[in-house]
Write a protein that binds this DNA or RNA. Structure first.
Lengths: 166, 166
DNA sequence: ACATGAATGTTATAATATAACATATTGGTT
DNA sequence: AACCAATATGTTATATTATAACATTCATGT
């Protein structure tokens, strides 16, 4: 049976999503004694505002529209902060960034389903998959510190459209 | 019980490894009607010659020592060919390339264990992990076309050294 | 007010990758 | 052999992604 909807419905209120994420981020930073500065907030908001993983230079452009025009290091530093605090993730296969949609307490490892048609990247945490990874590491005597799992293909919606096309 | 040695022993005869890989590549290309040209052979040899994933510009430098000095597109095209024919893999998290150590017939998906200390990246194919990925996709209604699994950490050898240090 | 560390600004450049077009090589056909 | 078409390689320029190094500003506690 399909688990809970991994890909968000197009109908959902994304503005509300963003607002919630900002609130959660503010709280998370507060509880960690980390500074959720205006710049970091803006970058996170821009990242969340994109339906697909967004590149660092795209973020730069978006910041420009707010009247600022920071240099690349400014954005990369903000991104580093967001990654370090589990507020965003980097999609290695796209050199791009997404807002984190999970609470990362103990472990910080997710998997991503990335649609090649609509560009959306959805974060999932699959227990069986995590188990399999742990087991593989154990069998190999390998001590995992970080893991990247990115699955590319077609999301349910785009898969449907694809069938109609051609 | 640990499965067969994933990380090669330092003692193994790597020259022999390379020679075997070149032979296999030649045969694979022949059977596919693909041209295993001298340039492609050289690039594959260089990739295999590196104990760790090697970047495109490093390959360029290595080629220079052979008297040539091609421009970047030459190397990227050779790499594209090698990737397309399953003779090499790209390590997304390092923007680098490794020789393929498996026969890819039906599916072309592997996982990589990447040691942060010695830099080695070992290709593995874990059935349970593949199963978990397939199941996850099925549960989400997602049609996987490509997958990237890169696990970073410490290989058995470096893990041992690490314990002694500090 | 002042000292300190964290955050941001600024300038320059490194590292990775591709577009566009020219030339050469290969393999089959006449 | 001469030719054609397809494939492969060469060449020039530039796009994209990322970081080093140092200057300035800001936040916080005393």
């Amino acid at each position: 049976m399909p688990q809970r909807q991994a890909f968000p419905k197009p109908s959902h209120d994304h503005e509300r999503c963003i607002a919630k994420a900002m609130d959660a981020a503010r709280q998370a930073c507060a509880s960690q004694g980390a500074q959720f500065t205006e710049l970091r907030r803006q970058v996170l908001e821009i990242v969340w505002g994109s339906h697909a993983p967004i590149g660092a230079y795209e973020i730069l452009s978006a910041l420009t529209k707010n009247g600022r025009r920071p240099a690349p290091p400014t954005v990369y530093r903000a991104l580093d902060f967001l990654l370090a605090h589990g507020l965003a993730h980097r999609i290695e296969s796209k050199n791009a960034y997404v807002g984190c949609t999970h609470r990362h307490e103990d472990d910080r490892h997710s998997q991503f389903l990335i649609c090649r048609a609509c560009g959306q990247a959805v974060e999932v945490r699959d227990f069986a998959l995590s188990q399999a990874i742990q087991q593989l590491a154990k069998n190999s005597g390998f001590a995992i510190e970080d893991q990247m799992v990115e699955l590319a293909g077609l999301c349910p919606t785009c898969k449907g459209k694809d069938a109609h096309a051609s």
